[in-house]
């Protein structure tokens, strides 16, 4: 390499500067040079990664901590699949940058103009905008805020982010699972950088989470009544009660009973319910997909 490039450079440099007047450069020289450059690019570890950012609005930082709760898995994600380009405390970047995937944590406080502006900026600058966690997706516990709290007593209007911007994908629960954000990050990588087969898999995997974003931004334990039991779909498996982060659900004679005073409206029960959605095209291949994700993280 050191032997070749000094020889070719003097020939190419003038050719490049004369490109507009002389488009036909010696083909053989150019091809050699391009090859060298491509190889060097691929050797850079950042070459094929996607960029991910986290916009922090009115949330408790539990979602951000959840991302870090992947422990060594987070390093693997950042080494091989994604650059973290924006995140409170983790990245020293002040302004919302361009990014492939923006994870938004927290609901949006309409009384805080900066929140609204940053959310809109994040929407404009990202390819995929994810409501990361229950506050962003459904409002969660901020649904109960009526203002008067220290130290911003005037802040009382909190809405799920989809009231302000279009959202592509929901990742509910309070907090979401580290494994869920890991799976979504790997799938987003496959979707944006993978081959056709990988793109198809990633699309199939992400589809229900995208449909969830279209379903609406109100969640409650009542969803189990309205959209599962009332619809004649509940078979009493117990998943909703098992997944509830605040233990608001018990199983009484084979059906869920929601203590609505405890429910924080995080949407976990409905999203985890096998009768909210069950996509056979993905689930039937569970062994292969789990092995693939495990392999990607090693």
């Amino acid at each position: 390499m050191p032997g070749k490039s000094p020889e070719s450079r003097p020939e190419v440099k003038p050719a490049a500067s004369e490109l507009q007047t002389k488009p036909a450069v010696k083909p053989s020289d150019v091809i050699v040079n391009e090859k060298v450059e491509v190889v060097q690019k691929e050797e850079k570890p950042v070459a094929e990664k996607i960029s991910i950012g986290e916009l922090h609005l009115s949330g408790c930082t539990g979602c951000l901590v959840t991302l870090a709760d992947n422990y060594e898995g987070l390093f693997k994600l950042l080494d091989d699949y994604a650059d973290l380009v924006y995140a409170l405390t983790l990245v020293d970047v002040r302004h919302v940058p361009e990014m492939d995937v923006c994870l938004v944590e927290g609901s949006c406080c309409l009384d805080d103009k900066l929140s609204v502006e940053e959310l809109k900026e994040a929407r404009a600058k990202s390819k995929v905008l994810v409501a990361y966690g229950a506050c962003a997706a459904y409002g969660n516990i901020t649904r109960f805020c009526r203002g008067g709290q220290w130290n911003q007593p005037g802040h009382e209007s909190y809405v799920p982010i989809s009231e302000v911007v279009d959202v592509d994908l929901f990742l509910p629960s309070c907090p979401p699972c580290p494994q869920a954000i890991r799976n979504v990050a790997v799938m987003a990588y496959l979707l944006l950088k993978g081959n056709d087969e990988q793109k198809n898999l990633a699309t199939a995997y992400l589809t229900p989470l995208m449909q969830l974003a279209q379903r609406g931004n109100e969640a409650c334990g009542c969803d189990l009544m309205y959209d599962v039991i009332n619809q004649g779909l509940c078979m009493g498996c117990g998943t909703c009660a098992g997944t509830c982060p605040v233990r608001a659900i018990t199983m009484e004679y084979g059906k869920p009973n929601v203590n609505r005073d405890l429910c924080i409206k995080c949407g976990a029960c409905y999203a985890q319910c096998p009768r909210s959605w069950f996509n056979f095209d993905v689930m039937n291949n569970y062994e292969g997909i789990m092995d693939a994700i495990k392999g990607a993280m090693q």
């Binding site: 990742l171 509910p172 629960s173 309070c174 907090p175 979401p176 699972c177 580290p178 494994q179 869920a180 799976n183 995997y205 229900p208 989470l209 078979m235 498996c237 117990g238 998943t239 098992g242 997944t243 509830c244 982060p245 995080c266 949407g267 976990a268 029960c269 999203a271 985890q272 319910c273 096998p274 069950f278 993905v282 689930m283 569970y286 997909i289 789990m290």
Partner: peptide
């Protein structure tokens, strides 16, 4: 579990929504 419950198990593993560190 019965078949629907095993389906639920696989959904918990592939889409862990509120099922932290279970998969």
């Amino acid at each position: 579990g019965v078949p629907c419950q095993i389906q639920a198990v696989r959904k918990v593993q592939l889409y862990p929504i509120g099922m932290r560190d279970v998969d």
